[in-house]
Write a protein that binds this DNA or RNA. Sequence first.
DNA 1: TTACACTGAGTTGTCAGACAACTTGACCGG
DNA 2: CCGGTCAAGTTGTCTGACAACTCAGTGTAA
Lengths: 244, 244
Amino acid sequence: MSHQTQLSQRLHRQLGDLLSELSPGDRLPSEPKLSKAFGVSRATLREAMRTFETQGLIQRRQGVGTFVVHPPGVMDAGLEVLESIETLAERIGLEVSMGAYEVEVRPATASQLSLLKEPELLYVSRVIEAEGRPVAFLEDTLPLSVLSKEELLADFTGSVLDFLLKRGDPSLATSETEIQAVATETHIARALHIQCGDVVLRLQGTLYSAEGAVVALSQSHFLPGYFRFRLLRRVGALEKGQRF
Amino acid sequence: MSHQTQLSQRLHRQLGDLLSELSPGDRLPSEPKLSKAFGVSRATLREAMRTFETQGLIQRRQGVGTFVVHPPGVMDAGLEVLESIETLAERIGLEVSMGAYEVEVRPATASQLSLLKEPELLYVSRVIEAEGRPVAFLEDTLPLSVLSKEELLADFTGSVLDFLLKRGDPSLATSETEIQAVATETHIARALHIQCGDVVLRLQGTLYSAEGAVVALSQSHFLPGYFRFRLLRRVGALEKGQRF
DNA sequence: TTACACTGAGTTGTCAGACAACTTGACCGG
DNA sequence: CCGGTCAAGTTGTCTGACAACTCAGTGTAA
């Protein structure tokens, strides 16, 4: 059964393991050697390497070799990966617990309607606490066709994202996220126990399924100082392989 | 001269153009058809597609086809691409001008020394103004071996990043960036004309060359409300092709 | 009619081997 | 000492083939 489907994953992991043992500037073995060592064809190996190159972790120079720019591990823990707050908090060494939460059905606003295309939406909010005080306030809004109130409450561990991933039904792909520092509105200030108008970090995301449909809208507010988000940015413009 | 070197770039652009004309959920032509249409082999085409797949723009399903998740253009304007503030501001429709700036040589702090490995560093700071008031304060610190004060001042247009890119000498690769909402220190508050302790958005970056060496440290502070950063996040964990 | 196994066309995944383009260092002749 | 030439090693690309998979359609049996 399915040796094949897992080949690229296995290879990706092997290559990642190798990279994580190397330091920036180190040179990788040549492609023929690597492909033989991993037991795959050179074409397959090259595709795997390409993923790391796209992420800016390695750099290839024709006639010279392939070099490590950044070992992984850094970016695998970065913002570019979408994950639940619980996972994130654990990573950055913050002990968190879920505070008050709310699950209810609400009518869609105009902007929500245009994106989610349903008049009634499931609204889930929750407060994340650390060191005894609220540090984050998370809100998710999604169509009832994706997730009903009863279904969620039957097995609600805290994260809507985790729930959807576990169920696997709408296979999730990406989230387009906007990062801002904003002055809090009243209902958010109340949840976080801060003054209305205080500045917090806001992540506003649009979650897409693999089919390209909008699955959910999320809005997360973080108290300054408790969370730090990392990100690996690549040099754009005229550099090789880049668009435009 | 060099037909080859530009092939993958050309193909990448062509494929990007094609994707930008499609909508989420659309299906791409099959790989044999596409490779013939673009005049490249299937292997080469697949490597190009892999870059888009890595970025979460398309999804491939064995036995079914390849589908558009996100057309590009969205993420080409995103945070994952490192670019100068001037370019960024123009993109988001904000007219900016450079205010006061400062270029001087400073002794390295302990943390700077461990990263940049030089006792004396070039420090460049500048204020960005929009609508007649300061909205961002940018600081760059880099070794004198990378850039001397005289060299920079001879052709300083405002952005150290643009300068380095134009010169091309240390070929830049990536920047590891940390995003936080923090209370301002005094010198930053003074530059931005706000109260010490007010919350601003901070991007702290470590710039790496293609060889993996640390080229510069940057610290940018943004006034809330003027800048919004976008980002395309991919679903992590157990999903296909992901590490771990 | 309905349920189910099967088949076949079309797709992506992987493979092997080959050649082209490029870089680098060594070698050699001036 | 300098510069040109060459050869080895590397990445880039091509070709053709086969494997694995999905899905719709078909036919058969209940």
